[in-house]
Design a protein around this nucleic acid. Sequence first.
DNA 1: TCATCTATGTGCAAATAGCACCTAGATGAT
DNA 2: ATCATCTAGGTGCTATTTGCACATAGATGA
Lengths: 137, 137
Amino acid sequence: MLRRGRRGYGAQGGCRRRIRRFLEPCLLLLLHAGESHGYELLENLDSFGFRGNPADSSTIYRILRSLEERGFVTSEWSEGDSGPARRVYTLTKEGNIYLDTWVVDLEETDRILHSFFREYHSHMKTHHGNDDEKGKE
Amino acid sequence: MLRRGRRGYGAQGGCRRRIRRFLEPCLLLLLHAGESHGYELLENLDSFGFRGNPADSSTIYRILRSLEERGFVTSEWSEGDSGPARRVYTLTKEGNIYLDTWVVDLEETDRILHSFFREYHSHMKTHHGNDDEKGKE
DNA sequence: TCATCTATGTGCAAATAGCACCTAGATGAT
DNA sequence: ATCATCTAGGTGCTATTTGCACATAGATGA
């Protein structure tokens, strides 16, 4: 334990995901396209652009169970096909609505992010080349 | 303690910020515009669009100290003006570079977010009106 | 038989971040 | 003079998110 010297704010260990709870809406969207099981969802998550930062399976399974507890998906064990039994998840009507509220929330995230970019670029436009002036130690 | 019945994933207590560690680049950008102290930064954070979700002062002060520990800002006590003494923070050259890496990171966040929106809208375009078909309970 | 793939899961720890609360100087009103 | 309030910085605690290590177990093929 204690894999790095630093602790607290800015130590950057453990949690790499940039947008909080972002895998949840991704899973909801995949399930909106049709019922599926954890392992398959895990593979299909690549369609969202997490490059070099694939989702962790334990996180996926935990999110799926949490979605079921809240009534946003239902699940059933499906056997018979090939390989081990799968728990197949289906989006409910509530899950559909929940996905829509997630989209609204992510649009707000997008607004906040772009409000930052706007501030950044407008500031850099008026202060370009001043980096020698500022930030001297 | 235990302010809500639910626990674990999806319980939505405690942390409301959507983008992880987002206050850090905001503070860095404000400091790029000129030295400042915690209380003032806290007020100026409104310029980034967190509507109805103002930053918590304890978080700000902790981020500032962490930035100083990592050499991205320096601080000095300034007395004499009016009111209690203030700890005034100045961005260092390293802090400037760190802000730039933050911008690159946030651009990646933006790409991921828009990759979600793209998937969402392209899926909804081909499946519009099918909500009665899907998601039945 | 054994490695490997598919599939689901548990235990743990680190990091983020909000809430409640504390300290203390300055300022102004009663 | 006392008290409330504003300014300014801070601590302690806790919930939540999330990744890593690891466990379990059926199926499949060499």
